[in-house]
């Protein structure tokens, strides 16, 4: 049974996307990569469920 939510779940997609892109403004590629890594780990902690993370990883790998 899939636990990962793959239905639309973000109100104001454009606002959130801009927040993400703005956070990277002025950073070098290395700094951006590091920010992304910290962001992913933070969100993993928020999700807190290994099964969900595994499903998300599988989806992202395509």
């Amino acid at each position: 049974m899939a636990k990962l939510n793959t239905t639309r779940n973000v109100a104001g997609a454009d606002d959130v996307y801009q927040m993400l892109i703005d956070a990277h403004e002025g950073l070098s590629k290395a700094e951006s990569d590091a920010l992304n890594a910290r962001l992913i780990l933070t969100l993993i902690n928020h999700i807190g469920d290994g099964e969900v993370i595994a499903e998300a990883l599988a989806l992202a790998k395509g």
Binding site: R8, V10, D14, Y17
Partner: peptide
């Protein structure tokens, strides 16, 4: 493949 990503397409 995934509908959830489509609102981000601009």
């Amino acid at each position: 493949k995934h509908d959830f990503a489509r609102p981000f397409v601009n």
